[in-house]
Amino acid sequence: MELKYTGKTKNVYKLEDGNYLLQFKDDVTGVDGVFDPGANSVGLTLEGAGRAGLRLTKYFFEILNEKGIPTHYIDANIEDATMTVKPAEVFGKGLEVICRYRAVGSFLRRYGLYAKEGQPLDAFVEVTLKDDLREDPPISEDALDMLGILTKAEYQQLKSLTQQIGNVVKEELAKKGIELYDIKFEFGRVGEDKQIVLIDEISGGNMRAYKDGEYIEPLELEKMFL
């Protein structure tokens, strides 16, 4: 195995067969020791967070694969906290795509003049550049196209997939009485036909979920859900 990338919450290795192995860590993003899925730095280490994140990821990716929604997922080993995936090419230097169902976090910080905290949103899709130096700035469809990061047709595909996948996660959580407020995804291009697929993970560390109006920590979410 060849180490290709050391990330905040996982390491990426290249396997001999050309696929990749993601090693999930116990580090989660946050500020001053408080978890925040939108933060640009590791805020804290939660023992068991890696395996918990992988359990949820495996659960959701397998549901998406059953539904015919394209992902890079091949299989997962919970004991080793690893996931085998197809090689994918990211957009530019990486994009994050957020699907929002309620006004919280950075959405509220930016649009607080108009938005009320917890206000319902209709699966609002927001794209940000992965750029720690500039604090992951939001970017519009036109700018993505003009800067050659993705075409307008690809943007529409990305938006549609984001809402589709977000709704699958939202419906699954709702079965346990849990409400999804927002969720962050990453996408890439796979294969010779450059198919756009979901990559990375779907875990408590990538979403804000609430039960009876109370925020659920990532590790608690995994226990409650699975």
Rank of each mutant, 00 (worst) to 15 (best):
I74Q: 02
G205F: 02
P218C: 01
G213M: 07
A123Y: 06
V90C: 12
C99D: 02
D193R: 14
Y210R: 02
M1S: 14
S140C: 11
E126R: 05
D17S: 10
E222N: 08
F61I: 04
Q23T: 07
E89L: 12
E89T: 13
L147F: 14
D182R: 02
K4H: 05
T45V: 01
E126G: 04
P37S: 03
D131S: 12
L3K: 12
T57P: 03
V125M: 09
M1E: 14
E192G: 12
V104N: 07
G191T: 08
M146A: 15
K67R: 12
Y181T: 09
T162Y: 03
R110C: 05
N167L: 11
Q163W: 01
V190K: 05
P70H: 11
R100G: 08
L150V: 04
K14G: 07
L21F: 05
T29Y: 08
A209L: 08
K93R: 12
G177A: 12
I196S: 09
D132A: 14
L113R: 13
K10M: 06
D75S: 14
G188K: 02
K194A: 10
R55F: 10
E66Q: 15
S203N: 00
Q163H: 08
G68S: 03
K10Y: 02
A103N: 05
V125T: 08
N206A: 11
M83A: 14
K14C: 05
T57L: 05
G191K: 13
I178W: 04
G177H: 05
M1D: 11
G50C: 01
V190S: 07
Y155C: 15
N65E: 15
F24A: 14
M224R: 03
K184R: 06
E172G: 02
L22Q: 10
I69D: 11
E96M: 00
M83K: 11
E214C: 01
